[in-house]
Amino acid sequence: MKNRTYHNPVGVGKYTGLLLISPFLAGALLLTLYPFVSSFILGLTDCGLIGQPELIGLENYREILSSREFLQSAGVTLRYAAILVPLKLIVSLGVALLLNIELKGIGAYRTAFYIPSILGANLAVVIMWQFLFTSGGLANQLLKLFGAQPAGWYGDSAHATAIIILLRLWEFGSAMVIFLSALRDIPREYHEAAKVDGCGSIRGFFAITLPLLKDVIFLNLILQTISALQEFNAPYMITGGGPMGSTTTVGMVIYDEMFRYHNAGYANAVSWTLFVTITAVVLLLFKVTGRIRKEHP
């Protein structure tokens, strides 16, 4: 280790590279590591708007785990991710498969599918989405058009959750683009060989395409899960967390505790609880999918 040689062009010292990446290292310390540790320490205090903050150990965590409000929001967030992520993966993979042939005007389709992902986080679109589901909004107009009963979208938890899920599902384009580029990398010969061997297109999908895509599917699964568990914008703006807290995500609880009630200590403990949960879910996904990912090398 000590005598490791560094393979650099002639005249370049071993610290040149380190110097070049130093902005990143400084940033990792200042913008990631520092707040990360600082958040944990704050979570051990009763830091609030008034008084000197004092260390109170794991008191915040005990309060969190017995708080009905937190437990409800944890349930809401996990259920939301459990519904949204699989749906989004299926839709984005399905559409990517449909797009993965030589079609005329394919670029226009790709653009149409991608635009919502680009604009979806824009507040203008979030406002639009809120309008779509008001009692006389587009969603109900369409339901009437097809002879169904218009719904009171903001009135019950199932419908309110559906509004948020539909918005995020509408933004499947970013996941689709990743799938599409992976599909393009699969050599055409594989499918042709399978066809010669009498393999139908459905069997071809399960025998060739799916195993080759497993890494990309996993990547999308992780990315989508992490972002779903942090959901804040959409429920904050569209449903306000209601009705009866049924769309109040953990992200919203953190925001309220920190910026509305100014309980910095408690808020940081909640955000660490969320961080640990996200890490646990990601590790669980690694473990559960590990066997599948290894079986088809």
Partner: peptide
């Protein structure tokens, strides 16, 4: 997750 870093 950015949510952990935003408050500090």
């Amino acid at each position: 997750p950015s949510i952990v870093t935003v408050m500090p």
